[in-house]
Amino acid sequence: MSGATRPGLRAWLLAEEPTSRAQARAAAWYQGWLKLRANTLAMIGLAILILLTVCAILAPWLATHDPFAQDLAQRLKPPGWEGHIFGTDSLGRDIYSRLLHGARISLYIVLLVALVAPALGLLIGTVAGYAGGWIDVLLMRLTDIFLAFPRLILALAFVAALGAGIENAVLAISLTAWPPYARIARAETLTIRNSDFIHAIRLQGAGPARIVTRHVWPLCVSSLVIRVTLDMAGIILTAAGLGFLGLGAQPPSPEWGAMISEGRKYLLDHWWVATIPGIAIFTVSLAFNLLGDGLRDVFDPKESAR
């Protein structure tokens, strides 16, 4: 903000000799931020995602129409028609407003999956990797079983069993998304497990639970964060796919995949109904991928280890 505090803050963050725990942690984050900021593509991705979040939060105020209000007289109007920025769909609902409210659903799905799946994968992978022996065999065969199914098919089976709806779609995607994270976490754990800093803390009498949560997890998290960000696009697409197949969000919910599914019938004559939510999905997926690439450069443990 004010020019006077800025240099002071910067100096504080870049100090050679931090004087408190908080300063050391803030400085480490700031270094990462500087690295990320240097990556233009990642910053574009981040900007899009921030925009998406703002849109989702402010959806009720930014929307020009009620996303559920039908007006059959105004159905399938092209973009720009009488205040409908992106036109209207087959029931005369404003696509722009539906898109904004749909952003909330997409973010909700992505956040829930991003919280559940990596956590589950991290727990299973690190426990398997650190414990070894029959625990490892048992957990990894379980992982293999889940990995053996194509993701969307398994998600379909879960949703079919649990019933259609957003919560179940999230659950189904999470249950199918964790095995790759478990594999990554286990592989990382195997390399960490035999390093001297783990031996050292074991020699200080630390138990397995403490070692896994405090010493192994911090080193696995960065590669998981990268992987999750890169997978976000896939998660959005799977959610959209479930919506498209009618097993995710249910009408009249403005979920993007369901919107495409609806527009499919009019694709040739009224292209915008399916294309505009399609562009939204594409943009957000791309943004997550760009950010993921940038985060990989920042977090790469092989580089920052030295």
Binding site: D196, F197, H199, Q204, G205, R214, H215
Partner: peptide, 30 residues
């Protein structure tokens, strides 16, 4: 009673822990 110092100081310190955190965890454990 018994502690050990390892050969490679580049491998024996946790790369994501500050000196403070390393020492305070050990002291707390004891």
């Amino acid at each position: 009673a018994v502690q050990m110092v390892f050969q490679d100081p580049y491998a024996s310190l946790h790369p994501r822990h500050t000196v403070d955190r390393m020492l305070s965890e050990v002291l707390w454990l004891h």
